[in-house]
Simulated scan of single mutants.
Amino acid sequence: MSATKRIVVFGGNGFLGSRICRAAVARDWDVTSVSRSGAPRWETVTSSPTPPSWSHKVAWERGDIFRPAQWTSLLHGADYVVHTLGILLEADYKGVISGRESPFSGLAKAFSPAKGAHSRNPLERVRDEGAAEPGVEPPTSPAQLTYEMMNRDSAILLAKEAAKEGVKAFGFVSAAAGAPVLPSRYITTKREAEAVVAREFPEMRGVFFRPPFMYDQSRAATMALAALATAGSAVNGLTRGVLGGFFGAVATKPLKADLVADAVVEALADETVKGPVEMPQLKELAHRAWRKTML
């Protein structure tokens, strides 16, 4: 009998992260989630405020991704580490939703150029500045969160610590493409993270998931956006992909979040899966995982 696999999911209390935890629990893996707030507020990630039965098998730990001392010990003995963190807008998105901040100010921040040291990845800063360890000064307010910090630097810092611990595989939730309402830096910072992790930590199998827009019935807003994306995908198909470059992710058919989560866990378990995982392979991996549940 094989030893129990151990997975640590950063951002495991989020929309996709919680579903990755669920899929890993279904395989009887030892599952740890790391996030700033610990366990999820279940009404924000599912259709019920009541914790599901599988959630009691997850260790819901607290830790700030930019403060490694808070979580490096949790990587000891891990087989897989997954990074699901990221931001769509460089703004206090909770403030936007609650009305405390205008969506227009969020877009203005997003389209502004990167500033200061946050425009360079932390490993480059170590080499150029002679520091002993890479690091990013933790943000003191949501307004300081940038694409470079959340979509790229946090992934690089986590990958570095995972490699030091001898983790077998590092999963990074990237993205299929940009979208017309988001600046190019949203996707370029994701791609930069992929490139740096693959180059700097070749001894660790890097798996870079590139899902399109994800939806679930528990989040009404995602269903409406999924319908829009599905329509965009149909139009793109009729025009033979002519609009794909302009519409980005909106021209790609969305996927159910549970399907993506199943694909992530299946890919980590398969030692032959490495590098970018695009939509067709995500669907194939999820189908393979589903077949295993039917045996």
Rank of each mutant, 00 (worst) to 15 (best):
P52H: 09
P52R: 06
P52Y: 01
S53I: 03
S53V: 08
W54K: 12
W54L: 09
S55H: 02
S55N: 06
S55E: 03
H56C: 08
H56A: 15
H56R: 14
H56W: 00
K57Q: 13
K57C: 06
K57H: 12
K57M: 06
V58H: 03
V58A: 05
V58S: 07
A59L: 11
A59C: 08
W60T: 06
W60G: 05
W60L: 07
W60Q: 08
W60E: 02
E61H: 08
R62N: 15
G63A: 10
G63H: 00
G63W: 00
G63C: 04
D64W: 01
D64M: 05
D64H: 13
D64Q: 08
D64I: 04
F66I: 03
F66N: 07
R67W: 00
R67A: 12
R67M: 13
R67C: 14
P68A: 05
P68F: 04
P68I: 03
A69N: 13
A69P: 00
A69T: 09
A69M: 09
Q70G: 08
Q70A: 14
W71K: 10
W71V: 14
W71C: 10
T72R: 15
T72Y: 01
T72P: 06
T72F: 01
T72V: 15
S73P: 06
S73H: 14
S73V: 04
S73F: 02
L74K: 11
L75N: 07
H76I: 06
G77Q: 09
G77M: 06
A78S: 14
A78I: 08
A78Y: 11
A78C: 12
D79E: 04
D79P: 07
D79Q: 03
D79Y: 01
D79F: 00
D79A: 07
Y80M: 05
Y80S: 05
Y80H: 13
V81I: 09
V81G: 11
V81K: 13
V81C: 11
V82I: 13
V82Y: 00
V82D: 01
V82N: 07
V82G: 04
